[in-house]
Amino acid sequence: MNLSYLIEPFQYRFMVEAMLMAALVGGTCAVLSCYLVLKGWSLMGDAVSHAVLPGIVLAYIVGAPLAVGAFLAGLLCASGTGWITNHSRLKGDAVMGVVFTGLFALGLVMFTKVTTDVHLNHILFGSLLGIERSDMLQAVIAATLTLVILAVVRKDILLYLFDANQARAVGLNTTFLHYLFLALLSLTIVAALQAVGIILTVAMLIVPGCIGLLLSDRFGRMTAIASGAAIFSAIAGTYLSYFLNGETGACIVLTQAIILTLAALFGPKYGILFRARAARRAAAGREQ
């Protein structure tokens, strides 16, 4: 095995583009995943990414950009869930399950009724290696927009998630923040969908945040670690998939999972091994 073999993937334009796309999308998802993981909203990423399907089909029918349809459907799912939860005696997770599957099912039924050149396979599983120019452009715009807005409001959103009452007490508009956050989530999902597809988007919206949480207890550092891990996994996963000849999205997610496992085992403060050692030391100390 020589060097030229190892750098072979970088010689193909589509491989380099795929890596850059994956890194951009993965990094954006990672930032959002920090908020989702802290708030216990993992199901939210799952729900919104499925609920975009009817929006995509409708957008196709009326000839609008698919991203716009997806975005609106995602927002509908998130706000509909909130509204129904507030007005019924059901737990939030159950309502979310009902709403997003309802929307996804609607999308499926509509899908069979219109003949499109959108492939269901692409929406479900992404097509990182064969991504089209226009899709790439949409994804880049969506991701950039999300990152810029988040950079501006990140502290407000953090306060809102940590203590909504306090956010209100210092005069923040919490309703606006809530919907802004959901809008950013939808936007990110739209970007990620083109690259890795619905189901693996869910992974990218959970795993990096957990890596960050295991390695730090400051939010800023947590975000940095999460996006670092996600960008690394994006590049490494795409690179590996070239040699394995397997699904790129799956390779990216599995790389993230490996990093997470390492963090859970060897993390300096919250790692399993560290804790075990600390517990042993404490026990030894007590015996003396």
């Binding site: 989702l36 993981v37 216990g40 909203w41 993992s42 199901l43 990423g45 799952d46 997770d93 599983f125 189901i199 693996l200 869910v202 992974a203 959970i206 795993v207 945040g209 957990c210 949480l213 295991l214 394995l244 397997g246 699904e247 999205g249 799956a250 390779c251 997610v253 599995l254 999972a257 997470l260």
Partner: peptide, 20 residues
């Protein structure tokens, strides 16, 4: 890690393994 995130991690990883 919170329970919901744990569930999310495990199932998406399993799913990714299946897809691969």
């Amino acid at each position: 890690i919170r329970e919901d995130a744990v569930i999310g991690i495990v199932f998406t990883t399993f799913f990714a393994a299946g897809v691969l």
